[in-house]
């Protein structure tokens, strides 16, 4: 294995593009190193992107947020401004592992690891985040929900990686929330998760996005659940309709972390709870 730590994206792209064997980008390494330790992968080349300035940068403004691909999740939580603008995105990112993991893991890594249970992904999709992809053929801007194709699989081509995640301008009267269910209070992988991002107009929900995690091969948007919220103040009937839509959208598996039955049921519960939290954060009053 070779280890490289270029200082420009251009150099990183050429290293990755030129590699004939197995190459991996190293940002936080909290998934990559585990897979190496388990013998699941044996890379020929590892490219550390943490010394690339643009990738280590976090810029936060109401007009948009730029999260460099090497920014540790802990840094997102340390930005008060980001916590105010996108509390759901921040809490999702901050739920990835312990403080130790937070010091390393990145939302880009969380996305590219392509786990159906990734914490930050539902919140990013709900937020309408875009990925800035860079590769041998230049840059492209891709919706986050187009990156993951299935467990462990992404749409990134050979030599491509994600330079940054960009969050859109934040409309007033907006709020987002992310909730996950885990048996432990910390150090756990989501059994089910739900992200809700919504905007209010005159006290009622004007736009909404509902995304579920760990209930399908990828995080899934549930437009029917979002529609159930729009035009309401989250009355019980709207919430029940929303929860039902969440349950209907589930296509989970039985595994060591949860059953189909359990995941489906709890998806509705978390969807409803996340909607209430996002609504409250947007300044909504029932």
């Amino acid at each position: 294995m070779r280890f490289e730590s270029p200082t420009t994206t251009k150099a990183a792209v050429s290293l990755l593009a030129a590699e004939k064997g197995v190459s991996h980008v190293l940002a936080g390494g909290t998934d990559l190193l585990v897979r190496m330790k388990m013998g699941a992968i044996e890379p020929d080349l590892v490219v550390d992107v943490k010394r690339i300035d643009t990738m280590a940068a976090l810029t936060v403004a109401a007009s948009g947020v730029h999260i460099g691909g090497a920014v540790p999740a802990a840094e997102l939580g340390e930005s008060e401004k980001l916590r105010t603008l996108w509390p759901g995105v921040v809490e999702a990112a901050n739920l990835i592992g312990s403080d130790q993991i937070q010091g390393r893991c990145t939302v880009v890594g969380n996305l590219c690891n392509a786990s159906p249970a990734a914490d930050s992904v539902p919140a990013l999709i709900a937020a309408g985040a875009k990925a800035l992809v860079i590769g041998p053929n230049g840059k492209r801007r891709v919706s986050v929900d187009k990156i993951v194709l299935g467990p462990g699989r992404t749409s990134l081509g050979h030599g491509e990686f994600i330079e940054a995640i960009v969050l859109p301008a934040r409309a007033p009267k907006s709020g987002d929330a992310y909730l996950r269910f885990t048996p432990r209070t910390e150090m756990d992988i989501a059994v089910v998760s739900a992200a809700v991002n919504l905007t209010l107009a005159r006290g009622v929900v004007k736009t909404a996005k509902v995304v579920l995690g760990a209930v399908a091969p990828t995080a899934i948007s549930v437009p029917a659940a979002a529609r159930a919220l729009i035009g309401t103040k989250l009355d019980d009937a709207a919430l029940e309709k929303m929860a039902k839509a969440c349950r209907a959208a589930c296509n989970p598996i039985d595994d060591k972390r949860g059953t189909v039955e359990y995941r489906t049921k709890v998806a509705g519960v978390l969807g409803r709870r996340a909607a209430l939290l996002a609504f409250e954060r947007a300044g909504g009053r029932k």
């Binding site: 048996p183 432990r184 209070t185 910390e186 150090m187 756990d188 992988i189 595994d255 060591k256 972390r257």
Partner: peptide
């Protein structure tokens, strides 16, 4: 009582041989 258990697959293999999925209590539990 609440979370720890060996989970075996139909193949008779242990599915959770690690501290992530064999959940001993953490401080906040």
């Amino acid at each position: 009582a609440l979370n720890e258990e060996y989970i075996y697959g139909d193949d008779g293999c242990l599915q959770n041989p690690g501290f992530l999925d064999y959940r001993i209590p953490v401080c906040s539990d």
